[in-house]
Nucleic acid binder design. Structure first.
Lengths: 351, 351
DNA sequence: TTGTAGGCGTTATCAG
DNA sequence: CTGATAACGCCTACAA
């Protein structure tokens, strides 16, 4: 039995088909097969047909690892988000994925569970896997990992926040200004006894900026910003409820509880229900993000509307641009508007 | 200037460090460096220290593509879920990821937007990228793609459903039986005018089974299963609300509206509010999944509790087992229990 | 214990 | 337009 035949049978049964197999079946060189796939117009009609037939017959799919090694491109973008649990990042990410898909890229997502260490690990994983670019949430991470990214020459775009002074370009909104706008409106409605429930602010610039925003508004209204001591808990409905109950157990009960996001606010709402408190008559509550959730609960949440889809779409455009034109990214500051609904009430004569 | 030096400098500035670079700096062979990374105990203490130092100094990270080509393993698992928008799959996936992480694997997630075509594309992408195994939702997909997976020898595990007759092993629950149990309880409370809002049932065995479950219960109570004509809409709060409003506009208004999942049910609740209908006095509503959402709305949803985390953890264990022991997967049928809350009421003398 | 060298599946540069 | 052939970065027998 001729060696060739033997080998053909072996490869055929043992493992997925390769370019070689296709080439052999189509009776052309591997180079030609490669061209058929990547640049069909460089090949004559009849040969292309033979090759396509062979590809179909064998059920061939190119091996990305090999392709990456040879071409240094994967048309893959990685995104690492803090959580997939609640839908905070889902809508924006969906738009991001659509934008990438339109441009011929695939998105791979990974979640860090709000842990810096995990995020770092996942950044390395995605880069080592050949991601052409990365989308990250917020600016807070170690110098070391930015250095690593530089060395590996992987473009990075930050989303969900805007900070032109940061090292990486960002497409997002000004968390601090948005929260300040919300807080100013609320304070203008007469609220003076202010409390806040926030996610952990360490390693989370969005959380920190939102706290700062409330303090800005307080200062602007002659209140002492330092008097605001946010309760920090993990983002979650249960956690929000528990924090709220604690807050209402204090000697001086707040008339308004600002929450770091809608999930926490929904938790607070639930805490209020547990305590038999009426919102907004007994106490007001605000969120941030304007998730679908915000309009599902009752009362509907006063919150900050974040342009999720727009942000995702613009991020896709920008990141692909950075990759293909090898240029620095340019930051964009999108609008995030306060949306007033029923969870905040007017205070008449409140100390 | 000696050529070696020149080359070293070039590589040093132009591209990420490779095994070669590390070897050169540590004055050992590439084989030794490789061993230091993959099997440290095969190397003497002093050499290992030199190598580790070189790795740190250079900021070296192994290139997965190259590693994959040589070793055929990536320690990466891919999961493709229908959507990331609402949190349906998030909790289970989170547990799945944790389970994988404990076993040394990384999870990469991709969402198909409930489109078979997109899912297929993503399956190929993940496989081509060297995923060691795949987690998919539900059994409904083309024969062709299962054949492809076989040929590529990539183990596949299905979750969120259980069907021992299907081609792929599954870890999930019996959607039909669970929905039937729920429906039986509801019907036993006197409901006879039954309607249902479902997600698209095409290419979605979970949706189909849940519809079948309601019909089973109807038949068991002497009602005509064929009289149930589910309204099919995309999973979404808005869509659920609209469908509900339509349903209540019919000549014979239902006393109970079964919903294919909690998101749809929350939508229905909202539709009821729009119509000024009281739930459950005027009409009852049920969900499925027991998302956090279910306890956040009011009235709280009667629904089916799905063991998300348990399912995710077991799936991780099973899939890794299939990969490492090269064995067929074994299916598991988990419990999904009815949880009665406030959205369903008793009907006294209803036709 | 350490080094040498072949091969993994593609792409891309040359000739033809 | 097509075909050799040299990388790409790593792993792993096999040798020393």
């Amino acid at each position: 039995m001729p060696r060739e035949t033997w080998k053909l049978e072996m490869t055929d049964t043992q493992s997925p088909p390769t370019l070689d197999d296709v080439a052999r079946v189509a009776r052309v060189s591997t180079a030609t097969v490669s061209r058929c796939i990547n640049d069909p117009q460089m090949v004559t009609e009849p040969t292309r047909e033979r090759v396509d037939a062979a590809i179909k017959a064998l059920g061939y799919t190119p091996n990305f690892a090999a392709r990456f090694m040879a071409a240094k491109r994967t048309f893959t973008i990685g995104a690492i988000i803090p959580t997939m649990e609640n839908a905070i990042f889902a809508r924006g990410l969906q738009a991001f994925q659509e934008g990438l898909h339109d441009r011929g890229y695939t998105l791979l997502v990974s979640s860090s569970a709000y842990k810096a260490e995990t995020e770092e690990e996942q950044i390395r994983t995605l880069v080592a896997r050949g991601a052409d670019g990365l989308l990250l949430i917020g600016h807070d991470r170690s110098q070391a990992i930015y250095d690593y990214l530089d060395r590996q020459r992987v473009p990075v775009l930050v989303a969900w926040t805007y900070d032109e002074t940061a090292r990486a370009p960002s497409i997002g909104f000004d968390n601090r200004a948005a929260m300040r706008a919300l807080a100013e409106k609320v304070i203008a409605m007469g609220h003076r006894r202010i409390a806040m429930i926030s996610g952990a602010s360490r390693q989370n610039d969005r959380a920190r900026m939102r706290i700062a925003g409330v303090r800005d508004a307080m200062a602007a209204h002659g209140l002492d910003p330092a008097s605001l001591i946010p309760v920090e808990v993990p983002y979650g409905v249960k956690e929000g409820a528990a924090a709220f109950v604690d807050l209402m157990g204090a000697a001086e009960k707040p008339s308004i509880v600002f929450c770091g996001n809608d999930v926490l606010a929904v938790g607070a709402l639930r805490g209020a229900r547990q305590l038999g408190l009426h919102v907004p008559d007994d106490v007001s509550i605000t969120g941030f993000d304007d998730l679908e959730l915000a309009q599902v609960v009752s009362p509907e949440l006063t919150t900050v509307h974040v342009p999720h889809r727009k942000m995702g779409m613009m991020a896709a455009e920008e990141l692909v641009g950075m990759i293909e034109e090898k240029r620095q990214g340019v930051s964009q500051n999108l609008d995030a508007n306060v949306v007033q609904r029923a969870s905040v009430g007017v205070v008449s004569s409140d100390g």
